[in-house]
Design a protein around this nucleic acid. Structure first.
Length: 553
DNA sequence: ACTCAAGGCCAG
DNA sequence: CTGGCCTTGAGT
């Protein structure tokens, strides 16, 4: 089960530039010059026990936080509750997610320390290119953060520090940025509200990921979801990447340069994410508040098949049960797409070539986290005991990933492919196929079937609940609660389909029939991911891998 | 007027 | 190069 041996050799990537010994002391190169920073003692290698995991983010305590009384899951706070409990002061006293030093405030989207703020700023502004002489997995902490800027910067990105321009997708304006292309001083960015909102969610999540790593390092297997790892050092991610050598020191004007100054070296501008089309279904609603909702791309397939007769009309929409309306409100597709493209951008930032499979795993992992986040805050689920929650999630996570992708594709026009920051093409569809390209036909068939049924957002969210609240899952303690939830959703879906799609014969029945198909597809994906993981090709210590192991226990 | 997250400065 | 402190200035 241990992949370590095989991997160690693989890790010696032919793309690794072995940096010559270069004094680390005086005289930083002029701004914009290509640099290879070599940690003191040119051949410094991280001792294994100091290596951090490339994308370690496993954290059972995040998934299932214990209440104050230590009674896990007796009551899981609803969304926002955690937020409210997290006082600003407390947060400020947190540790920098990059190095663990004292946080000095929000910098580039995260609470970080002053030094990492400065480091991140210098790196981005001066287009620094670093090289890691070890395995690109150096442990970064307060005392060692200077040793490997490559890994430090990578960690900055991994924990979520924002490059210039990333917020544009959210706020549609050039004036918000993290590192500012125009170097304008002063002023306050406009994502203050986002900082506040994210304080307890994203940031806490990231932070806890870091903590989880440390916990795991100490006691692997004690407290996690499932811990099937033979070694925390097994399968250091295989990556073939080179940092982009400095081409020129373009001075970019804020107007003309939409992206980070670092874009100078990239073959083509970053492809903006497709407009977040979250409100497709809501767009039909007379209550649709934002005109923006209509500005989004029309759904790929639904638009192709005009469905004036079958789609719910405004009046029918009004008859939708409040529960389903509430369900729909739990969906945050904007967030989904923002994190997707945010991750894709940050992971390919300053990289010539990244391992696309590894990247896909990272995206899936992130999706999984939002999946859990979503589930944790939903009715029916959040009152269950942790053990039950775990079992339900372990059983349905891949199904939900597949379903989500179908939803993103059908209702938000998610394209099949996107061009990464570094020019590589990333197969978005693969996310829905859980990495198995040969499932594409099956996936498309499924999608067509759903399109024929005029599968819409309420359908989607109901089916998602049906996947999650599966009373058949073995070992559930509170089966009644799960079954009640399942049946309630089932009834709501039936009612919805009858009310809003009376012309589609047995839409409900047909939708239910699709569930096993989704499951079959997801199962094949899981198997594939597991195999790749065993072959050492997938990042370890991720929630994704945890889930894969969980089922096999 | 105050806040606070940007960029800038410069001793080490 | 690093990181602590300073300056700036839009938002509140």
């Amino acid at each position: 089960m241990d992949q370590q041996t095989g991997l160690m050799s693989l890790n010696m990537s032919p793309f690794d530039l072995s940096p010559g010994p270069e004094g680390s002391g005086s005289g930083g190169g002029p701004s914009g010059a290509s640099q290879q920073y070599v940690p003191q003692g040119a051949a410094y290698q991280c001792p294994p026990e100091q290596q951090s995991f490339g994308y370690a983010n496993l954290d059972a305590s995040y998934l299932f936080p214990t209440g104050a009384g230590g009674e896990p899951g007796a009551y899981l706070p609803a969304a926002g509750t955690v937020c409210d409990q997290t006082d600003t002061k407390d947060v400020i006293e947190e540790l920098c997610p990059v190095c663990g030093d004292k946080v000095s405030g929000y910098h580039y989207g995260l609470l970080t320390c002053e030094s990492c703020k400065g480091f991140f700023k210098r790196t981005v502004q001066n287009k620094k290119v670093y090289t890691c002489v070890a395995e690109r997995a150096c442990h970064i902490d307060k005392t060692q953060r200077k040793r490997c800027p490559f890994c430090r910067f990578q960690k900055c990105l991994d924990v979520g520090m924002k490059l210039e321009g990333e917020f544009k997708y959210i706020y549609k304006s050039n004036c918000f940025s993290a590192v500012r292309a125009d170097r304008m001083r002063g002023g306050r960015n406009k994502f203050g509200p986002m900082y506040k909102r994210d304080r307890a969610r994203k940031l806490q999540m990231m932070r806890q990921r870091q903590i989880a790593v440390q916990t795991l390092r100490g006691s692997l297997g004690d407290n996690g979801l499932v811990l099937g790892f033979s070694s925390p050092y097994a399968a250091v991610p295989v990556k073939q990447e080179i940092q982009i050598p400095q081409v020129s020191s373009l001075t970019s004007s804020p107007e003309s340069s939409p992206g980070p100054a670092l874009l100078a070296a990239q073959p083509q501008p970053p492809q903006p994410p497709p407009p977040p089309a979250h409100d497709k279904w809501e767009a039909h609603s007379p209550h649709s508040a934002s005109p923006d909702a209509f500005a989004f791309d029309a759904p790929a397939t639904a638009a192709a098949t005009p469905s004036s007769t079958a789609e719910p009309t405004s009046t029918e929409t009004l008859r939708v049960s409040p529960m389903i309306r509430e369900f729909v409100q739990t969906i945050d597709d904007r967030e989904w797409q923002n994190s997707l493209f945010g991750l894709l951008q940050s992971q390919t930032y300053n990289q010539c070539e990244v391992d696309l499979f590894e990247l896909m795993c990272k995206v899936l992992d992130q999706n999984l986290f939002s999946q859990v986040d979503w589930a944790r805050n939903t009715v029916f689920f959040k009152y269950l005991k942790v053990d039950d929650q775990m079992k339900l999630l372990q059983h349905s996570w891949s199904d939900m990933l597949v379903l989500d992708h179908l939803h993103q594709r059908m209702h938000n026009g998610l394209p099949d492919e996107t061009t990464l920051h570094n020019g590589q093409k990333f197969d978005l569809l693969c996310l829905g196929l859980l990495g198995v390209p040969s499932l594409a036909d099956h996936f498309n068939e499924l999608q067509n079937k759903l399109a024929e049924l005029k599968f819409d957002v309420p359908d989607y969210i109901c089916v998602k609940f049906l996947l999650l609240l599966n009373p058949e899952v073995r070992g559930i303690v509170n089966v009644k609660c799960v079954r009640d939830g399942y049946q309630t959703v089932q009834a709501a879906l039936l009612d919805y389909t009858l009310t809003c799609y009376p012309t589609i014969q047995d839409k409900f029945g047909k939708l239910v029939m699709v569930v096993p198909e989704i499951h079959a597809l997801a199962a094949r994906g899981e198997e594939h991911l597991y195999q790749r993981h065993c072959a050492g090709q997938a990042p370890t210590q991720t929630l994704l891998m945890e889930m894969l192991h969980a089922k096999r226990k």
